[in-house]
Amino acid sequence: MEIIMSFVIGFLFMAAVYLMLSKSLIRIIIGTGLLSHGAHLLILTMGGLGGTAPPVVADGVSVSDYADPLPQALILTAIVISFAVTSFFLVLAYRAYQELGTDNMNLMRGTEDND
């Protein structure tokens, strides 16, 4: 399963990068969303997918059956943080559109005033 997941994750990263290279801001933000999905799944996969019971103490489950709880905790933290960042990014995009009147990144050239 881990092998399939590795490919899925690679695919997610690929799609994310492709989207981030496009000029539309919303596609870029969607790309960041995919990127974090990929990263979260990666942690889970790297922790091993072999557990047969959720990591919640229950009767009749031996310790080795639990799924690895540490990656799950890490993912939880990472999810929350990427949620914060994504919301910020969305509002930023919203404000940028209000001020700059575009969501096209090509029209948002920087201050690199090459004189």
Binding site: I29, L44, L49, T52, L76, I79, L90
Partner: peptide
Amino acid sequence: FRAPDLALTQLVIETISVALFLLAF
């Protein structure tokens, strides 16, 4: 993959994110 806490959080957050996407765009 036996991660109920993650599933819970992911579901709520995904919903809110989609709502925010729609709001912002």
